[in-house]
């Protein structure tokens, strides 16, 4: 009798144990993810708690300002326009960068022709284009989107060129033997083959896009996150200004998490391949 209950509890225990272990590993994971941010926030809270300096408000004030400032019509008036420009600029840079990169990667002559010009444009810091673009494209969304594209384009373009050029010769021969030409070659060989490098370029482009979104909104703008932060600073609404910076940080963090999700879906095969190669060596 006691033996039977013994085996029963043992089975139940192992199942519960597995659940517990899973829960524990999840908790450890979460602790790693949020541990340091939580500690830093606590430190901030403690250090700023007794602050009487006008420019360094307490964290309580900032958080109160955060809720008040951003959970309002500003979501529609400022946050969404910013996100819209970011999306348009980022996607524009991705499409142009990948398209041009594939062309330059597959055609050495066009690459030789365009390389000096591209090197020049790459060397121009994009914010410096803002005054010029204001003359050409006005001060509307177009100008801001063009600024984002002009900065975020380069990592995508250069990585795509490298990725396309590095496609394995044997794989390329195989594709030719089996009649993969034109669009089929592009879809089945070139783009997936270059995808590890393309995704690396897209990751860099994302952070550049966020930076340029903010900067472009600081000039001659009437809406957006960059505009709002500058506006708060000029009107000495210091806790609100800090809350804007906090929001930008959170936004960047959320977008990079989303990107990591995208990357793990697109490049799952690549991680597996690399692991198996390392295992063999």
């Amino acid at each position: 009798m006691s033996g039977m209950t013994g085996t029963k509890t043992k089975g139940a225990e192992s199942r519960a144990g597995r659940g517990l272990r899973l829960l524990r590993s999840g908790a450890v994971h979460l602790a790693y993810l949020l541990g340091l941010p939580a500690a830093l926030l606590a430190l901030w809270w403690v250090l700023a708690a007794r602050s009487t300096n006008f420019y360094y408000p307490t964290l309580d004030e900032i958080l109160a300002a955060f809720a008040e400032t951003w959970f309002s019509e500003r979501i529609v008036d400022d946050v969404l326009p910013s996100l819209g420009r970011l999306a348009a600029g980022y996607l524009g840079a991705a499409v142009i960068g990948i398209g041009l990169g594939v062309l330059l990667g597959t055609r050495p002559r066009i690459r030789a022709l365009l390389e000096p010009v591209l090197e020049f444009f790459r060397a121009v810091p994009p914010p410096v284009l803002i005054p010029v673009l204001m003359l050409v494209a006005g001060i509307g969304d177009t100008m801001k989107i063009v600024v984002i594209i002009s900065g975020a384009l380069w990592p995508v373009l250069l990585n795509t060129v490298e990725g396309v050029r590095a496609i394995d010769e044997v794989l390329s021969d195989t594709a030719r033997c089996y009649g993969l030409t034109g669009t089929a070659r592009l879809r089945r060989l070139v783009l997936p083959g270059a995808s590890p490098q393309i995704v690396a370029g897209l990751r860099q482009a994302l952070s550049i896009s966020i930076i340029l979104m903010v900067i472009s909104e600081m000039f001659a703008s009437s809406s957006g996150l960059g505009f709002t932060v500058v506006q708060f600073q000029r009107s000495f609404a210091i806790p609100e200004m800090w809350s804007g910076i906090l929001l930008l940080g959170l936004l960047g963090f959320a977008l990079s998490l989303l990107f990591a999700l995208f990357e793990s879906r697109v490049l799952g095969w690549y991680r597996g391949l690399r692991q198996s190669q390392r295992g063999e060596k």
Partner: peptide, 26 residues
């Protein structure tokens, strides 16, 4: 054609089935 470098002639982003099927799609 079957190449010597099997590791470099199969599409690593496709499953085995998709690798065999791809030329047939073409």
């Amino acid at each position: 054609v079957v190449f010597q470098e099997y590791g470099r002639s199969l599409f690593p982003w496709m499953t085995v089935g998709a690798n065999v099927e791809l030329p047939l799609k073409q």
